[in-house]
Every structure is written in C-alpha cells, then in structure tokens.
Design a protein around this nucleic acid. Structure first.
Lengths: 183, 183
DNA sequence: GCGTATCTATACGGTAGAGTACGGACACGC
DNA sequence: GCGTGTCCGTACTCTACCGTATAGATACGC
C-alpha cells in the first residue's frame, strides 16, 4: 500500500478541467499527463482506455451537479422560494462555475453521442423532478408548473451560452429579475 | 470558364452539415471530400486552409440566422406579437432546424475560441436589438423588456440543449405556453 | 533493509488527418 | 479541335494521438 503519486482522482480532475475548457475532444491523455507533469505511462494503470476515463468524468459530473447540489440546497431548509433563490445563488457561485462549464460541454457532446444523451436525459429529468414540487408549493396549475420549471432550466442552460450585452444593466441583474418573475 | 463541378458552395454546405452534426472538430477536409464523392485535391483550390473554411462557415451561419431570418419575419408585417409568434414558428420549422444545430455548435465552440466568441456576441446583440423594439410595443417598463428578451433568447438557445421529458405534454406545448406567458 | 504494490518513463507500432506538389482530366468558348 | 481555366487524383511529408510492452523507480509495511 504505497502512497499514490498521481492517483485516479488527479486524472479525473485534470479530465474535468479539459472537458470544461475544450469539450470531450480536448480530453487527450498525453495532454492530461503533461498538465500533471508525468507521462501517460501511469494513466493506463488506472484506466482501461480513454473511453473509460470519459465515462468516469460523466459520473463525477452527474454526482456533483445533481446529488451534491440538491443536498446543499436542501440542507438549509426554508420554503420553496427560498430554496429556488439559493439554487440561483449556487449556480452563480464561483466554485460551481467550472462544473457548469462541464455541464455545457456535456450538452453539446450529447448531440452526437447516444450514450451521453441518455445520461443527460437522466440528469435533466432528475433536475426537473426536483424543481416541480418546489413550484407546486406556490403554483396550483400543473401546466404552469411545467412551464416555469422549463424556463428555469432554459435560463440555467441557455444564459451561459449567450453572449449579449445588456447596456447599463449587468447580466446578473437581468437574470435575478427573470427569476423573481418566475416565483 | 469551365463549369464548376464541386464549387465553393458545395464545400460550405458540406461543412455546415458537419459543423451541425459534430462541431468544428468534425469539419475534416478529407471527410467532407468523401461525402462529396471527391478527394481533397480540389478543396485547396477554393480555400487557403481548413481555418479559411471555418471562417466562411461562420459567415454563412450569421447571414442565414440573422439577416435572412429577420427578413422573413418582417416581410409579412403585423404587430409585435404576431411577429414574435412567427419567429417561434420559424425556429420550430423543419428547414431552420439544421441551421439551429449549427447555432448550438457555434455556441459551444465560442467557449474556447476568442474570435468565434466575438462573432457570437455580434450575432446575439443583433438578435437582441431586433427583439427589444418588439417587446417595447406592448411592454412599458424597460427592465421588463430586457428580461423578456433574455428569456426568449434563453428558451431559443437552451431548450434544444435540454433533454427532459414532460410526461403527457409535448415539448412544443410547453414551449408554446412559455411564449404566451411572455407576450 | 527487503518485498511488494503502485506508479512512471521510454520506446514502439498504428491511425487519422493537415497541408503540399504536380500531373492530368474535363468542358466550355472560340 | 484546341486552349484555358477549373478542378481532381495521387503520392508524399508531418504531426498528434492512442494504446501496448516492459523495465525501472518509489515508498510504505513489516
């Protein structure tokens, strides 16, 4: 049981960084090795092949972006509106940002890989299943609940992809107002 | 002045198809050649290099998705609400779909290429500049105009990236209701 | 301090694709 | 029917990776 010099987790962290920055095509084993200051020799000790790493990256992303995120919002309790506002805060937070960029990369990736698409469907469905009861707390009409959940998700997914300038307003201000409009 | 067997435009069409399907990484000259039934010999007659093609693809996308789209909505006149509904129809139409997939690919691409990001900013700004006056026609508060424009754009960009299922409702139904909510 | 598990470096073979060079094919204009 | 401009095919070099093989380094457990 010697100490692991470059453990599995290091490769996954480096992989997530590459995935966030350049999409799955940018997850190059030799480049990850270089960024970790080693050669690829050790990579094949931990992983079967490149695909195995990509699978694990998806797993890590799903866990952090669904399980952990929901857990963090739920932990502090409060009513539905409070939770939704906290979710908004979380999405804008510095530390979640890099994972959010993984999220965007995965969405694009899913357009050309069936297995990734299936995974994304599961993730998005889980998010919706979390959102719906929250909106039901203050919104009676079920169609309206669905629309608001969808709008929240669209803002979450769409806004980082959008490059507009809002004149004197900041992006944050515009999105905050958009959220309040949905509550 | 002989006839052009595989003219510039063929390479651009094939390039847009590849870009829509697999992002910029999938725009491989040898593969485009194969899909056109020729070898890459002729490609370098028309284009300096691969990058030159990618630049032209961006130009073609911008023209089709901004100039032509706005022109088609404006042509038939009507009030702001009618135009917005027509825009929604257009975005959902069969023929615009493939260009919309180019749009998504460009958004992901822009995250890792400054020049593409600058271009996307221009495109999104032009779209917002088109939307704002439409919402002003029936919405007095300027902050509210900005929010609604942004929500429209978020739905336009975000929803194709989202993989949720809506139970008994169709995606189209949910989005239609979302639009009506913004008008 | 020795053994073993855990990496790591190095070297190699293979594939995909970019870009270049250049000879030729093809078809229209005259 | 011949010349010219417009491609097209082929053959090359280069680079960037993937994945494999294997010997060697490292550090902890005892």
């Amino acid at each position: 049981m010697a100490v692991t010099r470059t453990p599995r987790s290091s490769w996954i962290e480096a992989g997530l960084r590459a995935l966030a920055d350049g999409g799955p095509e940018a997850v190059r084993i030799e480049q990850l090795a270089q960024s970790l200051g080693v050669t690829k020799g050790g990579f094949y000790w931990h992983f079967e092949d490149r695909r195995a790493l990509l699978d694990e990256l998806l797993g890590a992303w799903e866990h952090a972006m669904v399980d952990e995120a929901i857990e963090r919002v739920e932990r502090r309790g409060g009513d539905a509106r409070a939770k939704l506002r906290r979710l908004f805060e979380l999405a804008a937070s510095r530390e979640i940002r890099s994972l959010l960029r993984v999220d965007l990369a995965v969405r694009d990736w899913s357009r050309r890989d069936q297995r990734v698409a299936a995974r994304l469907r599961r993730v998005d469905d889980r998010r919706m299943e979390y959102l719906r009861p929250l909106f039901r707390e203050f919104c009676a009409d079920e169609d309206e609940v669905e629309v608001r959940c969808m709008l929240v998700l669209c803002v979450f997914v769409g806004s980082p992809f959008i490059a507009v300038t809002h004149g004197s307003r900041s992006r944050r201000q515009v999105l905050e107002r958009a959220l309040e409009r949905l509550l």
